[in-house]
Nucleic acid binder design. Structure first.
Lengths: 220, 220
DNA sequence: GCAAAAATATGATTTATATCATATTTTTTA
DNA sequence: TAAAAAATATGATATAAATCATATTTTTGC
């Protein structure tokens, strides 16, 4: 994918790319820093988030092996608008923004793919904006669980193949740890999900999807 | 801009484009409908919004003459993820998605421009997501006023060159009409803005920007 | 130009969710 | 493996913002 749409350009990429390793807890880049490169995740888990004040954050997405993060070249602003923090030790393939821009310049097909990717991201972001503005917290948590299920898949035991801290889950759903805790309790009582320490399992998808469609005027 | 980056392709565009006229209140396209084309606004004002249930909405942005809206081709989903409604009578230049995709295919420079545009949109969306999740309502209203000021400019009298209904302003800020009303009163009392019927004027930009940075732990 | 509809104003009340406080369990590290 | 630190659990309380209710003003259509 890092090269998925080039041709005679491949040797240049192999030449330019660098492998970088990061440990859990490390910050790969920080909101406000000058944007220098784009990363392709070969291994591990990263969270991409925006901060607010000292101790509040909204997590924008989680990246797993095979995914791309950190690109903001081309755009008018040249600083990272987000922070990337390692959740599970990772290995990344890095190229500088300059080189990546040159690559885009030279590879029309890659540019189209890249555009397509970002159009999808934009649609997801717009949907989440609506959810944050209009949906209740429980719905956003339901939505997150469905998203994690889709993105990370499930193991043999049916549990989602990703173990997050509750604080991070809350920060993705746009709520506090305490509210997250209470809503999860309710979802368990309602028989929608099962929780075993850091593991989450969806047992009634319909019930979760229901929260996606419920209108604020209906209370139940 | 509709052609800003083509060459021998121009005649084809002139051939394919259609001028469409819409009146205030008309829906140009609706969330969930099959996406058929892309619009370039020649005249008027359009709001692009997402709906929730029967009567709740979040406005994603306002478009004025010279701006583009409605494109979702290339992306995996082929339905409009948003609704476009006319706020002021408008004249649009329309091309089908099929033709636009062909145009992208044939014009690398246009594709790059288009990518750049959407990268910026994505950054804006991510910032707004954070605001909706973590900022208080008054801050989001302050933010909106600064945005409108920037996008639409001001007239000789210093008032923003766009007259919206309060309900629409509230729907952009992600709140209800009543809360919007109260917060605007406070901003007026604080001497940050001036309001004359549908006209808004920023008189203390610093004060508005302050709400953009204030942390939830500071109350004043 | 007048009636009907829509938009605006504003107080009172409710509610969802954040904040605070504290106990317990789990994980890390020295 | 013990001590310290971090994460989790959970009740009590506070509060921002939504909802409800109603009056007034403005706009629109006939």
């Amino acid at each position: 994918m890092c090269r998925h749409s080039s041709k005679g350009w491949l040797p240049a990429i192999v030449e330019e790319r660098k492998i970088k390793i990061f440990k859990r807890g490390e910050v790969i880049f920080k909101e406000g820093e000058k944007a220098e490169g784009i990363y392709f995740l070969l291994q591990g888990i990263v969270k991409v988030h925006k901060q607010w004040g000292e101790d509040r954050e909204l997590i924008l997405h989680f990246s797993k092996a095979g995914e791309l993060f950190g690109y903001r070249g081309l755009s008018d602003d040249t600083v990272y608008p987000v922070t990337a923090t390692v959740l599970e030790d990772c290995k990344t393939c890095y190229v500088s923004i300059d080189f990546f821009n040159k690559t885009l310049q030279a590879n029309h097909e890659l540019t189209l793919q890249f555009l397509k990717f970002h159009l999808n991201e934009l649609r997801r972001a717009e949907k989440r904006m609506r959810n944050l503005a209009l949906m209740e917290v429980k719905g956003r948590i339901a939505d997150m669980l469905l998203m994690l299920h889709k993105q990370f898949g499930i193991g043999d035991d049916g549990y989602i193949r990703l173990q997050l801290k509750r604080q991070d889950m809350a920060a993705y759903a746009g709520t506090t740890y305490e509210t997250f805790f209470r809503m999860v309790n309710e979802l368990v009582k309602e028989g929608a999900i099962l929780v075993k320490s850091k593991q989450f399992k969806i047992i009634d998808k319909k019930k979760l999807e229901h929260y996606d469609n419920i209108e604020s005027t209906i209370n139940s």
